[in-house]
Structure formats: structure tokens, C-alpha cells
């Protein structure tokens, strides 16, 4: 439990430090039209993606780190 929290804290601190190294945002808001396209979303529909993660989690031992769409269902 403790080591988990410590790992998360270390990760967060590392990322914060990394972001501090950069100079300024290199992709301006008006340059993001490609990224704003719905086809560029990691998941077009988070609910449907969550279902697929649920299927994988039920049939495979691995779990977690599915990203924004999340996973897990509070079931076994």
C-alpha cells in the first residue's frame, strides 16, 4: 500500500519535473484541427470501449492501464 503510493508520488513528481524542462507549447491551439477530428480520439465511444475492456479483463489475467476509457466493473 505504502510502496504503491510512493511509486505514484514519484511518477507524478517525475512528470511534473519533465514538463518543467520544456520552453513553451509547441502546438498552438489554431494548429490542432487534425487533432480535433473525431477520428483522432483514442476511443470513439468510451462506453463501447469500456465493454471491450471488461471482456478482456474477464478472459485474461492482465488488468488495468486501459487509459481514459477505463476498465473494471467491480465484478469478478
Amino acid at each position: 500500500m505504502f510502496s504503491t503510493l510512493r511509486r505514484l508520488a514519484l511518477l507524478g513528481t517525475g512528470m511534473a519535473l519533465l514538463s518543467g524542462c520544456s520552453v513553451s507549447p509547441w502546438v498552438a491551439p489554431y494548429e490542432r484541427h487534425y487533432l480535433a477530428d473525431p477520428i483522432m480520439a483514442f476511443e470513439m465511444d468510451p462506453v463501447a470501449a469500456g465493454y471491450m475492456n471488461h471482456v478482456y479483463e474477464a478472459r485474461e489475467a492482465a488488468r488495468g492501464a486501459e487509459g481514459g476509457s477505463g476498465g473494471g466493473c467491480g465484478c469478478n
Binding site: T4, L8, V27, Y34, L35, F42, A65, E66, G74
Partner: peptide, 29 residues
């Protein structure tokens, strides 16, 4: 009974005008 605790961190980063990346870490107990 059983208890489950999940801790997840996602870092989403725009890299170029056409490239986006995400790093996810998750611990489950």
C-alpha cells in the same frame, strides 16, 4: 468477501499537430 483498490494515472500528451500519445500506469490491490 473481497476488497479491490485501484490507482490509475494517465498522462496524455500532444506531440505534434498529427501525433498524440498517452502513458497509463495502474496498480490494483
Amino acid at each position: 468477501d473481497a476488497q479491490h483498490r485501484r490507482y490509475a494515472v494517465n498522462w496524455n500528451q500532444i506531440l505534434t499537430t498529427k501525433l498524440i500519445a498517452e502513458l497509463s500506469v495502474e496498480t490494483v490491490a
